[in-house]
Design a protein around this nucleic acid. Structure first.
Lengths: 342, 342
DNA sequence: GTGAAAGCGCTAACAT
DNA sequence: ATGTTAGCGCTTTCAC
């Protein structure tokens, strides 16, 4: 694009050496130069409309002040708040977030990772990935600075920040139990994700703790369609007397809504449904969704904080932060009712 | 971060000059070099795990292969699809999108714009802004390449891509008219935005065309709260016999839902509500929302296409693309019914 | 307190 | 077909 004005131009106008202009404009080095000179340089810079060239600076300083943020898909409503959280922490500190979407594809993720490396990002915030996260494993080996958010990978010692999912699921099961539900179905997330695993085992634990009969049905992805077809299969079998569905996330719960509706079942009249995440607009659904609020914005903030801490210190810390979650009771959960299935 | 391997390292291993490595690896210049050499260089590069340094390359070539994307707020659900659309066009062409959020604040927008300029973006896609868009006006003066999406600015000759909003509003009013609505309220968007203006005047035109009585109530922002409080005011007045609300977007319509519910009114039984945009999950609301589908993803694609075209040609074209929209009838619009308001 | 000079890693004339 | 050279715009050590 345009803007051809360089340090040298400013230096010429101010009648000083380019090096001096650099120092005068820097902030960190501003005190190394005569106050009067600083003013003169500033005036010249403003007059010319000087803007530093971030690529030249970055090349010289080996730092881009940019953080690579890798998410599966911005269209999944939990990610925008997370990205905004990240940005809200980075921006005041002079960093920017560069966000890329993998669509859950490992190949794409690898390519995007490389491309962010080429852009010389100063670190990564990674919200994708399986428990067996090959990319992160060798990112670690390469000495890359990163923090994982919402997901964890086994045996990869990056710091991570997640919600206290197990706690959330326990609260859900307790809530359902109080409403009299004794047979509960868990629409589990897809295999190979830490979120799926943690929520599922918390579900099992909570059920045996409250004495409820828990059944787990896995889904193929965290999506409306996957939730719908998984529940369709169960409902079509026509057996089982469960009265409540605990979905591993809100999208799955929405899929459950659809399936129930298709089968002429009322929620929460016939079957209660509880989601997970409290995604935006969850309270506006039909029925308003009972779910667990995950602090996505705060997760982003915390991840950014952890990463900048690493960047400042130059070393990885491998801490793992677990943020509190909260059950939000709305209209999709109600008293258990005996029900006959065709 | 790590990765200290440069062209020179590869050159040494391959036993050739750095310049040759550059050519061998480039694609555009690959044919200028002996095929055997190319292979040797490639092997050396792979063996060392060489990655080009984008800052060094960009500094030299004066191009960052990056597009700055300025949106108000990624948490507004119309933007993620737009961003994905942009990215889907850019990525295969070697470009990346750098997205920033202004939160509707002019000062933030200016700062972010400068920061993207410093990063040497090759062009802008701008989804923010008033009809009186000061920033864009002087961006134009600076010779910056940009396209506006979803919004237009008066007297600023950047290309723009929008939905055919006027057409959409006409279809809404016709739909309502067929359902027997004769008195219709328009919850207009905030003043100073092209979307607000276009939808409002289309509403007026459509009403007089169908002979319906149209009343316009402006809102303070495109948000749920603004929609709710604007309708609250009308409903609290207790006069007026409108039977339908045409909201300038889905968020406003959702606010209308809330207001209606607070006033003990049923939608669509007492009052029909129609939104605009067909944001994600609009069909899952209570009631499922009748709205106009704006092709946000496609708008992103088109904007990216237009911008890359400008970049390739080096000149601005000032075309204005209007993409088709479609009325999506769901459950929030129904037959007009006589109604008594307290 | 400021000037001089080198160099970050790359590409693109220009030579050969 | 490949080597040489210069330089993109900046920061930073080293002089003075």
């Amino acid at each position: 694009m345009s803007n051809r004005i360089t340090l040298a131009d400013v230096a010429k106008l101010a009648g000083v050496h380019p090096g001096t202009v650099s120092r005068a404009l820097s902030g960190k080095t501003e005190n190394q130069v005569n106050a009067a000179t600083v003013r003169r340089v500033r005036r010249a810079a403003k007059q010319l409309g000087y803007m530093p060239n971030a690529m030249a600076r970055g090349l010289r300083t080996r730092s881009s002040m940019t953080i690579g943020v890798i998410v599966p898909d911005l269209m999944n409503p939990i990610f925008p708040p997370m990205v905004r959280g990240i940005d809200s922490y980075l921006a005041p500190r002079g960093f920017s977030a560069f966000v890329v979407n993998t669509d859950g594809k490992d190949a794409a993720e690898r390519t995007l990772f490389e491309s962010l490396m080429e852009r010389q990002v100063d670190g990564f915030i990674v919200a994708t990935g399986h428990t067996d996260h090959v990319l992160m494993a060798d990112a670690l080996a390469r000495g890359v600075l990163a923090v994982m958010v919402n997901r964890e990978a086994h045996g990869v010692s990056f710091p991570s920040v997640t919600g206290d999912d197990a706690r959330g699921i326990h609260e859900v099961v307790a809530h359902l139990s109080e409403l009299g539900h004794r047979r509960i179905l868990h629409l589990a997330g897809p295999r190979g994700f830490s979120t799926s695993e943690i929520r599922e085992s918390a579900f099992q634990a909570a059920c045996s703790q409250t004495g409820a009969a828990g059944r787990v049905v896995p889904t193929s992805s965290y999506s409306i369609d996957a939730g719908q077809s998984a529940l369709d299969v169960v409902l079509d079998q026509g057996v089982d007397g469960f009265t409540a569905v605990v979905a591993a996330n809100d999208l799955l719960a929405l899929g459950a809504y659809h399936s129930l509706r298709m089968h002429g079942l009322d929620c929460p009249g016939d079957i209660s449904v509880v989601g997970f995440n409290d995604m935006p607009f969850a309270g506006d659904f039909l029925p308003p969704m009972t779910t667990v609020r995950s602090p996505h914005f705060e997760m982003g903030v915390e991840a950014a904080r952890l990463l900048l801490e690493q960047i400042a210190s130059g070393q990885s810390s491998a801490v793992s932060v677990k943020l509190p979650v909260a059950l939000v009771v709305r209209g999709s959960s109600g008293p258990a009712r005996r029900r006959a299935i065709s």
